Computed example of a mutant assay.
Amino acid sequence: MKKLLILGILFSFSSNLFAQPEVKIPFSTAISAHIVKYNQKIDDAYKDKDLERAGFLFDSLVRNHLNGTYMDNFSLNTLKGDPILLRDYEKPMFLITYAAWCVPGIGEIPALNDLADKFHDQLDFVVLFWDTKENLKSKEKEYTQNIQLVYVNEKTNQDSYIINKLKHALGFPMMYFMDQDKKVLDIRKIETHHSSETLTNSYNIHFNSLSKGVSLLIADLDAKGLLEGDENDESDQEGSDKRRGKKSKKSKEELDEEGRTAEERKIDEEYERYKREKDSLKNNRRKNNR
């Protein structure tokens, strides 16, 4: 019996000894490593007027390289009071990046207000404006008090390494969904529609789109058993200097006959599978309708 107990203790010790902690990749590191290549492909798709492929490439970048990374900590300015750090928000975050000169759909802000009023106890709703305090003040009255309006003036903010990535690499308006540790669960573009859309239709379009992000965050909370708001504090993680801002040099041996890297081949193959599956579904619908 004593031998079994000793063996059990040794096994438990060895398991803990070799357990590897999670490697937390900063968002800025991941996007720096992949954004240039993807933007080139997305630009080519837009030139060819292939909007479907452009959208697929954006989703591929987010799904394969950005989801699961951790948003870098940076300073945000508030309309009243001192600046706040991103990590000071303790709940899962529904973050929208915007600018005062952007014109939202007529039903977008009302839909966001309704969701924030309903779920603000579980989530932090934050709208980040790349703008000045003066321009943000004119927008304040449009939002419910359950949405926190903050701004970053790129000319004065000291966290340029992440501000540049958030504002210029992916563009805006953009939605970021992060858990309580600021782990990126998904990134999506704001839904758009024609300016002539009615208020009712615009509201429904945006409510359906925005509520998917809320559902994602609530489902993650539920899966972790944290709907009551338990939080785990995590220390900030520094990215690897070798991966940040350093261009990789590809040798000719790494390229195929079309000049693609292994990762670029993977992206193209994934898109071809996506197209085949979509075409197959279309053909099946046509057969069923005959």
Rank of each mutant, 00 (worst) to 15 (best):
I31S: 08
R260L: 09
H34M: 14
H206L: 09
K49M: 09
K137W: 07
Q122E: 15
D59S: 06
R285T: 03
E22S: 14
N67P: 00
K224L: 13
I96S: 06
L216Q: 14
F119E: 07
L10S: 09
Y274K: 02
K155R: 09
A33C: 10
K24H: 15
K167C: 04
D43H: 04
Y203M: 00
A219K: 15
Y271T: 09
D59C: 07
T29Y: 11
D59G: 09
V152Y: 00
E231Y: 13
Y143N: 08
E264S: 06
V127A: 03
G171Y: 02
D159M: 00
D256T: 08
K165D: 02
S12F: 12
N283V: 08
E257V: 08
L227G: 12
S160V: 12
L136A: 10
K252I: 06
S215R: 09
E90F: 03
I31P: 07
D256Q: 08
F125K: 05
K287W: 03
S235Y: 09
I147R: 03
T261A: 04
L255V: 07
K278P: 00
S211H: 13
N67T: 15
S138W: 00
G68E: 05
N16H: 13
K250R: 05
D186C: 00
N135L: 12
E263Q: 04
S160F: 03
Y176K: 02
K137E: 15
L51Q: 04
F27L: 13
L170W: 02
F13W: 11
K118S: 12
A111Q: 14
Q180Y: 11
E258G: 04
Q40W: 02
D43R: 06
D179M: 03
I25L: 14
H206D: 07
K246T: 12
I190P: 06
E90Q: 13
S251W: 01
T200Q: 12
D82A: 12
I84R: 13
P83Q: 10
T97G: 01
E254T: 10
L61A: 05
E269W: 06
G8A: 01
A54Y: 04
L255W: 10
N164K: 06
S235R: 07
R87V: 00
N77W: 01
K246R: 13
E52Y: 03
V214Q: 03
S28Q: 13
N288G: 06
A111L: 09
T132Q: 12
Y151A: 02
L123P: 01
